[in-house]
Write a protein that binds this DNA or RNA. Sequence first.
DNA 1: GGAATAACCTGGATGC
DNA 2: TGCATCCAGGTTATTC
Length: 296
Amino acid sequence: MPELPEVEVVRAGLEPAVTGALVASVDVLDERALTRHAGTAAHFEAELTGRRIDAAVRRGKFLWMPLGSDDAIVTHLGMSGQMLLRLPGAPAERHERVRIELEHPEHGPLSVVFADQRTFGSLALDELVDTPDAAAGGRGSVLPRVPTQVAHIARDPLDPAFDDARFRARLGRTSSGIKRVLLDQTVASGIGNIYADESLWAARIHPETAASDLPTRSVNRLLAEVRAVLEKALAEGGTSFDAQYVNVNGQAGYFAHSLNAYGRTGQPCARCGRPIVRVSFMNRSSHFCPRCQRVR
DNA sequence: GGAATAACCTGGATGC
DNA sequence: TGCATCCAGGTTATTC
């Protein structure tokens, strides 16, 4: 499932290929890929054609490609979305939804393919608005602008402009379980089920601990572990369990080999040897060590 | 207004 | 072998 490290790997792969490129044509094969777009498929295709892409930018799990300073192509990969770079004329990908043909001044013609099995991901043309703090909208651009669809999303913990004090204050105001809060993209973006479990395991915090019960030193430790886990996953190319997450060249990441909690139900905890347990949580699952991560 | 939950979706794994 | 069911989870609308 693409979370911050996986989306950043995709962004970094797209950046040199799309920056400065002209959109030669757009082909929407499945309108379900445009659920975030306000207009029709024909409108999407017409509005993008002839525009020039300035950058590839990311905040949390959102990715966008600015078309000047007023609007951008916004992408969310959802559960299974992929952004693939292909040579023009390459055969259609399985679950291909949208194909954007580019003409790059240095690299020549190139295709950006959006493929998505579960159709939770989507593309849209969206307006850019100013960031409230006047800092860069996200990684990949110095422009203090962000798509309207991303404006309500908090900065991610790897963003230099992330506000640690604001994060601590939000945790102090809510009695919800800390894992639920970590997954709230308006508190800190980019963290999904995998990295929430891994960060909480590393910080030795039970996922159902009330956020407001965490002392400041625990919150600081958790934030440090969130950053460490995200950085390590990024360095290893993200987490791939199957073919659903790949980089722009279709290659898988290696972080699945480094997981300590997520998906390790019944296997011994790397710290104490006690079996990792799995419990139902918000229509999904939580994995933790019942000895190292005790409810406060 | 904050918190919790359901719904959306597809395909692989599992059980019968 | 074939069919039915379960499970994975990010975001958003709805409900409490």
